[in-house]
Write a protein that binds this DNA or RNA. Structure first.
Lengths: 327, 327
DNA sequence: CTGAAAGCGCTTACAG
DNA sequence: CTGAAAGCGCTTACAG
């Protein structure tokens, strides 16, 4: 099976390569019957355009880059999926790189990625804005899950939902509530913490701040130890995976959720719904986040400066939050 | 910031483009000091080779394709990561496509992918071998997680581990054990079923076959209903996610694991370790699967016909299996 | 609407 | 070890 190019088709049909090329890229500039014959022949020969050649000629790669800090964190697969799907709708392929949780590799990975694609979507970067901007250079980019000046950004705003979650706990008679801090380098952790503090102040609930803890199951288990030793009867975990560790850590101490302690997670990942007890959590519309990122990236690549987007999260009470134990 | 090419460097240094090109691709063919100056200047100018041009010139894309049926299934992210890492070690990028669980889209997605890359890794395909081979055409390929004639394949062989798991249950005095079938289109499901049947026959344990059920949390809940109504005191779930659904479904019926029923999962995904109770499961060395796939793909691309690989799984008893309830 | 030609940025025989 | 030149397969002004 020899290589089939536009010239194979051109020769077979007695037209020029230019015409074949146009039949694909500017169909309206080719007479209908000629185009029909070209398309038919292309199909017959199994023609697939050589993307490298096209890219070289047009200067666009047709690919967008996606930087993810940790594909293994259940938050990201749905995001990756949404981004891929939106990209496919725009005939773009996506090249994904996973930092494997290494913050130090971040800048180098992003720099390399930026060189290979038309634009990049950076999810949950941990590095400083300056380093990130340096790595990006002039490549169009969208940052997801973190706000950053001079950059189009799409984030999930959980403040209102977190306040709702807080009210829900207060209504269940929890009078002192723990805030299990996420990693201090995480923008989302800082956001959530400040939203919760604000809620606690206005709701006149006593807030006990514990941590920071890693955003992992183990981090949650450590959090559980601190939580169990505190007077709090309910806690906000940084995310669902952490919450899951908290449930396990409490269980190891003979404390059962929601009977003895209540806990609310964040993100509503698969885990939150399959855990027993199901987690009360704040859900991020992850799919919309991804789709929006691709749309906005398209605008940036087109030279526009679209406004940043913030999507509201939503509180979903489930089984992990219950009435405060009566002592 | 204007585009920097090999000629920017060549001009700045008074050498030819050929020499600059060689400095990168055939360093031994360039005098040491010249190469050093070129590399330094490239660095100074922030040179990034244009991949499209390189690809067009060499005829290789430097990319491998990865087809995944469902990125959202916790089995796949670690596989993706391992494959990416191994590819990066070989200076290849990976273009991933996710079928979003749509079996019907499989062939078309794979065909498109195959046209864009030097070789493809196909994970857990559901389609018939004929359709798959047709979609692949002459593109070098490795199939992961399914055996297939005339194709280099890397799979995890769980037979021995499943028999170990069975023995473990029998030693805990379970006399009748349920097999919750996975989806009938799944090669892995058929494999596991036959390994379990073989074990049951030789161990003289009564096996009750239930299902098939979907490979999902919901599928597991359905399985739990059938399991609860059966005389079995322990069950093999198709995978960990399903097992998780079984635990939840049993809980809804007031049955607790491992007190009232025992359950063993498969794959040892993150979920298995964060669930309470932690799942007894058969672990696939997912990372090795991915690394091996990339290695073998390299051989196929080099024109060799490497032998298929089967890696042994391992049984890991944890908390979800306990002594049979004494009636 | 169509063709001849130049050009995208590399690589790589071929001469020297 | 180095340079001039051709070629990879497309796209796209430019002429007609």
């Amino acid at each position: 099976m020899t290589k089939v190019t536009i010239y194979s088709i051109a020769d077979a049909l007695g037209v020029s390569g230019s015409t074949v090329s146009r039949a694909f890229t500017r169909p309206d500039q080719v007479r209908d019957d000629v185009r029909a014959r070209i398309l038919a022949k292309a199909d017959e020969l199994g023609y697939q355009p050589n993307r490298s050649a096209r890219r070289l000629a047009t200067g666009r790669t047709g690919a967008i880059g996606l930087y993810i800090p940790d594909i293994t964190n259940p938050f990201f697969p749905p995001l990756v999926r949404a981004i891929q799907q939106a990209a496919a709708d725009n005939d773009a392929s996506v090249i994904m790189v996973d930092a494997e949780e290494s913050t130090s590799a971040e800048a180098a990975l992003i720099r390399r990625l930026a060189g290979q694609v038309d634009g990049v979507i950076v999810a949950s970067p941990r590095g400083t804005p300056a380093r990130l901007r340096d790595a990006l250079g002039s490549t169009p980019a969208i940052v997801v899950n973190r706000e950053m000046m001079h950059t189009t950004t799409v984030i999930c705003d959980n403040s209102a939902a977190l306040a709702q979650a807080g009210d829900h706990l207060r209504d269940l008679n929890h009078e002192t509530v723990a805030l299990l801090h996420g990693p201090s380098a995480s923008w989302a952790a800082r956001q959530r913490a400040s939203a919760i503090r604000k809620w606690a102040a206005s709701a006149e609930v006593e807030l006990i701040e514990l941590g920071p803890f890693e955003a992992s199951y183990e981090g949650g288990r450590e959090g559980a130890a601190a939580f169990a030793d505190s007077p709090a009867t309910a806690a906000f975990a940084f995310d669902d995976l952490t919450a899951c560790g908290v449930v396990a850590g409490l269980a190891e101490r003979g404390l059962s959720v929601p009977r003895d302690r209540s806990i609310v997670g964040c993100d509503d990942v698969l885990l939150a719904r399959v855990l027993t007890p199901k987690l009360s959590t704040v859900s991020a519309p992850i799919g919309r986040l991804g789709a929006a990122a691709v749309d906005l990236l398209g605008e940036v690549m087109a030279g526009k400066q679209p406004a940043s987007l913030r999507i509201q999260g939503d509180f979903t009470p489930r089984q992990s939050s219950g009435p405060a134990p009566t002592t």
